[in-house]
Amino acid sequence: MQAFVKTLTGKTITLEVEPSDTIENVKAKIQDKEGIPPDQQRLIFAGKQLEDGRTLSDYNIQKESTLHLVLR
């Protein structure tokens, strides 16, 4: 499924993900596309910070959801 990641600069990245993907996995995909190390990434969805060990389905993130990427 497709999900979108919006950065603070307003850029939107499109990712191909599965509901079973972990947040860690998603961060690795963002690193592949953008070169941002996962340890600098914080992903926010519905106002919550997403934890590495959880999956997209844990957070009820469905296709075409938009996550927000904040860098630390």
Rank of each mutant, 00 (worst) to 15 (best):
M1C: 04
Q2H: 12
Q2K: 14
Q2A: 10
Q2I: 15
Q2T: 15
Q2P: 07
A3Q: 04
A3W: 05
A3F: 14
A3P: 02
F4I: 09
F4Q: 05
F4H: 09
V5T: 01
V5F: 05
V5K: 01
V5P: 01
V5E: 01
K6G: 04
K6C: 09
K6Q: 12
T7M: 15
T7N: 05
T7F: 15
T7E: 03
T7D: 07
L8Q: 14
L8T: 14
T9K: 10
G10N: 06
G10I: 02
K11G: 07
K11M: 10
K11S: 07
K11T: 08
K11Q: 09
T12R: 07
T12G: 03
T12S: 06
T12I: 15
I13T: 03
I13L: 09
I13P: 00
I13N: 01
I13S: 02
T14N: 07
T14D: 05
T14R: 10
L15Y: 02
L15N: 00
L15S: 00
E16F: 13
E16T: 13
E16P: 04
E16A: 09
V17F: 05
V17H: 01
V17Q: 00
E18P: 03
E18V: 13
E18S: 15
P19W: 09
P19F: 09
S20E: 11
S20Q: 11
S20G: 12
S20A: 09
S20Y: 10
S20V: 05
D21L: 05
D21H: 05
D21C: 05
D21F: 07
T22C: 03
T22I: 04
T22R: 08
T22Q: 04
T22A: 04
I23W: 02
I23G: 02
I23K: 00
I23A: 02
I23N: 01
I23E: 00
I23P: 02
E24S: 12
E24I: 10
E24Y: 15
N25F: 11
N25E: 12
N25G: 09
N25D: 11
N25R: 14
N25Y: 11
V26N: 00
V26H: 00
V26R: 00
K27I: 03
K27A: 02
K27S: 01
A28I: 13
A28D: 06
K29H: 04
I30S: 00
Q31F: 15
Q31E: 11
Q31R: 13
Q31D: 05
D32V: 13
D32N: 11
D32G: 09
K33Q: 11
K33E: 07
K33I: 14
K33R: 10
E34H: 09
E34G: 06
G35H: 06
G35N: 08
G35K: 07
I36L: 06
I36V: 09
P37Q: 07
P37C: 06
P37I: 05
P38L: 13
P38S: 14
D39V: 09
D39H: 13
D39Q: 11
D39K: 10
Q40T: 09
Q40K: 11
Q41S: 04
Q41W: 06
Q41A: 05
Q41M: 15
R42S: 13
R42Y: 14
R42I: 15
L43H: 00
I44L: 13
F45P: 00
A46H: 14
A46M: 14
A46E: 14
G47Y: 05
G47V: 02
K48H: 12
K48W: 08
K48Q: 14
Q49S: 10
Q49R: 10
L50D: 00
L50H: 00
L50E: 01
E51V: 08
E51R: 09
D52V: 06
D52W: 03
G53L: 08
G53K: 12
G53E: 10
G53F: 11
G53R: 09
R54W: 10
R54A: 08
R54V: 06
T55N: 05
T55S: 08
T55L: 09
L56G: 01
L56C: 02
S57N: 11
S57L: 11
S57P: 02
S57Q: 13
S57I: 08
D58V: 04
D58Q: 07
D58F: 14
D58L: 03
Y59R: 00
Y59F: 04
Y59P: 00
Y59S: 02
N60I: 05
I61S: 03
I61H: 03
Q62L: 12
Q62W: 11
K63C: 07
K63V: 08
K63G: 14
E64L: 10
E64T: 08
S65T: 11
S65Y: 08
T66I: 15
T66F: 08
T66K: 05
T66D: 05
T66W: 09
L67P: 03
H68I: 14
H68S: 07
H68Y: 14
H68Q: 10
H68V: 13
L69W: 02
L69R: 00
L69F: 05
L69N: 00
L69H: 00
L69I: 07
L69Y: 01
V70Y: 14
V70C: 08
V70L: 14
V70R: 10
L71R: 07
L71T: 11
L71H: 09
L71Y: 09
R72V: 15
R72K: 14
